[in-house]
Structure formats: C-alpha cells, structure tokens
Write a protein that binds this DNA or RNA. Structure first.
Length: 327
DNA sequence: AACCCGGGGGC
DNA sequence: GCCCCAGGGTT
C-alpha cells in the first residue's frame, strides 16, 4: 500500500529544491502559462524556450495575440510545428478577450479550442490552483512504475484508471506544485529508458524500483508484459482427533492459505517447496513454508483439507497441498 | 478507434 | 538515416 502522504511530501520537497528555472515558472499570468502549455504539447522544453520568449515579446498580452494578423502569428510559430496549435491559440485568445478575461473554471478552460484534458488540468492547476491532476506521458510513466503496473497505457481503460490514480495522489493543497513535480520527475529522473532510480526522491515508494522492473515500464501496445510476483504461503497445521487441519480463510468462496505477512509471530519450521501459478498476465511464484502460529490471524480458521465437504479449495491451495502428497 | 499534425531526439 | 514521440482535433 502506497504511503500517499509520504509520497507527496517527498515529491514536493524534491521539486522545491530541484525544479528547473524555466521562463513560464516565473509568472503567474494565466495567459503566459497557457502559451507555455500549448507550446510544450509534443515539444521538448529546450526547443520551446526561445520561441516562448520571442512570442511573448511580440504578443505580451492576450489582446495582442487576438488582434495579430495571421501571417505574423505564423511567423512567430514557424519551426515549432503543429501549426494548428497556433491557429487554435489565436481563436481561443479572441474568445478570452470577448469573455472579458481568462476563464477560471476547469470546464470553461477545457472548452477553449486547442485545450484538451491535459492542458485544461495544467492551466487550471498552475494558474488558478484548481485541484485537477494532469495526465501526460510523463505522469503515466511515473504512475505505472510507482504501482508496478504492466497494463497497456495505450488502452483507454488503463488511461481512465491512471487518471483516477493521479487524482488520488494529487496534493489538493498544492496542485500546481504537485502536477509540475510529477512531470518534472518524469522528465528528469523517471526517464523512459534507464531511469535514475538511485536519485529518485520517491524511490522508497516505488514498486517497480523494488521489483527491478522500472526499465520495462510502462507497457505500450497490444499485449501487456508478463509480471512475475513472488509470494510466500504458510502451511500451519494441527492434528485434532487424528485429523489434519490447516489455517485457511474463505476468499470469494474458496479456501486460501495465509500469506506470510498475514500471520504475525509465525515461526517458520520447514521450506516445503514451490510452484507457479498464472492469473491473467501475472505469473506468481509461490513458496510454501511450514510454520507454527502463536496468534490466530484475523479471519482464519482451522480447516480439514482432505474432505470434499464445505467450500472448495482455490487452485493455489490445491497446488500447495499437492507439494505434500507428491514427492 | 484510427489518423493527422511536425519538429527534434534517440538509436 | 530511420523510427518514434504523444496532446488535441477530426473523421
């Protein structure tokens, strides 16, 4: 379980110390923040900086942009690419002027031409402090690694889940810093290839770093990569009136053995063996350890496994049981 | 859901 | 020198 508060604290602390000094981080003018976000769509920071400064010298206010002849606008944009961004920028500038100012609510910002989910969240949070999480390629990569999530980030269902996750993690008190910190982390530490995990402020909160899978994430494309997960199951046995019983609990109607972490103060007495079990695209490697428990774990009971009465055993439990009957 | 926009960077 | 990036809009 991710320590959300600790994650936010470490990320924000790192960001305040390490953030790059970028021109659009020196202003609180929504117009200038918006221009930077449009230029940064699919375009790297280093390429944007000179364009950004020239553009704002020529069009210092949203009114200047609204009134500019198209040729002059395109001259200022020439070389940046995706010229519909420039045309939409001016269309939106005219709407903003006729509305009497920059809209301050998410839906109104989102409705401007050239502004989609990402840019509305970025401008809304950075310029107005709206508590809306951004989801761009950087944030998707960071989230996939934090959760060691091998789902296909191209799939709309995965994007929806990542969006919810980003919103869960968002610091509602500091949405501007949090959103920028997530993207800054993706751009400078949590790189697509060879992520700098040793320098990462949230290394201790990252399941991919722990599993050594960061470089393989995120997964893009049709099929998700197979995840390998190791678990230890405890075989805690007693003999009651000549009948063998083990500790197990009912999970969705099937008996399951306890995870090692579920039994506090267990004493391991013998490594019994191991087996693998695939569920969806995850291959589990289960280690089975004979143990004794001094405390009855919450929710577990003594179950007689040999009889075909009551609830069935899960496949995992049957595989564990088979380690005893077969050599 | 697929495709287009455009430059620059990684391999 | 080729491949690919990835937000927004359109079809």
């Amino acid at each position: 379980m991710l320590d959300v508060a600790g994650f936010r604290r470490a990320l924000l602390r790192w960001y305040e110390r390490q953030k790059r000094d970028l021109p659009w981080r020196r202003t609180d003018d929504p117009y200038r923040i918006w221009v930077s976000e449009i230029m940064l769509q699919q375009t790297r920071v280093a390429a944007v900086i000179p364009y950004y400064e020239r553009f704002l010298e020529r069009f210092p206010k949203v009114e200047d942009l609204a009134e500019a002849p198209e040729a002059e606008l395109l001259r200022a944009w020439a070389g940046l690419g995706y010229y519909s961004r420039a045309r939409n920028l001016q269309k939106a500038a005219r709407e903003i002027v006729s509305q009497g100012g920059f809209p301050r609510e998410y839906e109104a910002i989102r409705a401007l031409p050239g502004i989609g989910d990402y840019t509305a969240a970025a401008v809304g949070s950075i310029a107005f402090g709206l508590p809306v999480a951004v989801l761009d390629g950087n944030v998707m990569r960071v989230l996939a690694r934090i959760d060691n999530d091998a789902a296909d980030i191209q799939a709309p269902v995965t994007r929806g889940r990542l969006r919810e996750r980003a919103q869960e993690l968002l610091s509602v008190r500091h949405p501007a810093a949090f959103n920028q910190a997530m993207m800054e982390l993706g751009a400078t530490i949590c790189l697509p290839k060879n992520p700098q995990c040793l320098l990462c402020p949230v290394n201790g909160n990252c399941r991919a770093a722990a599993a050594g899978t960061a470089n393989q994430l995120p997964v893009k494309g049709r099929k998700a990569a197979i995840q390998r997960v190791s678990r230890t199951l405890l075989w805690v046995e007693r003999v009651e009136e000549g009948v063998h019983q083990v500790l197990a609990r009912l999970v969705k109607g099937f008996w399951e053995l306890p995870d090692a972490e579920a039994v506090v103060n267990a004493e391991w007495t013998q490594r019994v063996g191991h087996f693998s079990h695939a569920i969806m695209n995850t291959v589990y490697r289960f280690e089975v350890v004979r143990a004794s428990a001094f405390l009855m774990p919450e929710g577990y009971e003594w179950v007689t496994l040999g009889r075909q009465v009551g609830s069935p055993l899960s496949t995992v439990t049957r595989k564990a049981q088979r380690l005893f009957s077969r050599p």
